[in-house]
Simulated assay, not measured.
Amino acid sequence: RSTSFDSLELQRVASQHLVCDHSLPPAWYRLMLGQQPVEMPTRCVEMNRCGTQAPVWLSLKSESLPAPGESKRLTGCATWQVLGGTRDCCLFRIPVAVRNCGSFFVYLLQPTPGCMGYCAEGEPWCCNVHLGDLVSQASLPLSLAVHPVITAELLQGRAHLKCSYSPRSPEPPVRFRVLWSRLSSPGHREQIHQETTPELFAHLEMDGANLRLGDTVFCTVTAFRRGSPEQQSLPEDSKGFYAGIKFLPESLEIAEDGKEHVLTVLSTVPIACPGQDDSCKVTLQLSTEDLGKSFTY
């Protein structure tokens, strides 16, 4: 499985020995070279390497490998040649969970969709690399799926976001680590709050400073057993929640003699009224453009 192993000669003289993980039992594995642990490569691997034709490597993109004691869901990519002879480093995608056990990584591997092989790299490359024995369940993440979802609600007259999550099966006593983040730029998030709670929900106030209108917010939930924080579930992300005012549709082209159009203004968060009366309202400024000229109403 070494990235330095050229599979072309193997295909020519003993193709039956090509690495083919389509029948690999789904389980946690670690990659071993003799008695030394090695890792899946995190860069594109050329075709006909790793003892197979379509090598599978670990794509990080803007992600990073988990820190010691942590786990992450990442993507395995299989390299293959498409029409015209162009190489596609990620023609096939396979979910791979990775846990950092301190001195080595373990990988939750799935059967591949065809004759492909998971790659490994490490030093020195003296021998073939094999998938290690199944890892002891005692050291693995909890098998909880929490499915976090963000909604908005009023609490004591103030707008809050609520992150709710529900484990697939109760395994008490369990606690939850909730990490709130917002989109700071396309593809990048910044952390704004973290807490640990035994509850199946967590709140975050729209305070106008850490969290304000126009933010796209995420909550990431990790479950762990009380007294055993090192044994935790894989962190799960909610879908991004846009906290602000939406226009439906987002844009309109209107002719002076055309038909009537309906523009819906929707707030995804509740509007808090500071006073006691019911005349709470939000004033909006509407701008239009006409052949390079802009008008504000």
Rank of each mutant, 00 (worst) to 15 (best):
L211C: 09
S164I: 03
R175C: 12
Q276F: 10
A14E: 13
L291N: 05
L74C: 06
S233V: 01
P274T: 03
H203L: 14
Q110A: 12
S4T: 15
D257R: 15
K72F: 09
H22Y: 02
V129T: 12
L155N: 03
G157E: 13
A152D: 00
G244S: 04
H203G: 09
Y242H: 09
L284D: 13
A209G: 11
K293D: 07
C101E: 02
S169E: 15
L60I: 01
T288R: 15
V269T: 11
T3Y: 04
L204Q: 08
Q194G: 00
L60F: 00
S238F: 09
A255G: 10
P55K: 04
A14K: 13
A223C: 02
Q137S: 13
L266P: 11
S169K: 14
L65H: 02
Q231H: 14
L248Q: 02
F176S: 02
A209E: 11
L155Q: 05
K162N: 09
S15W: 11
F247Y: 12
C44G: 14
C50Q: 03
G84N: 09
M47H: 12
S103Y: 11
Q11M: 10
A209W: 01
Q191L: 12
H147C: 06
C127Q: 06
F247A: 13
L213V: 04
L58F: 07
T220E: 15
V178D: 01
Q110K: 14
D21W: 09
C101K: 15
P235S: 05
V45H: 06
C50W: 04
S2Y: 08
Q194L: 04
T197F: 03
C163H: 14
G34Q: 01
P148K: 01
L179Y: 05
P173E: 09
W28P: 02
L33Y: 08
P26K: 10
R158I: 09
V149I: 14
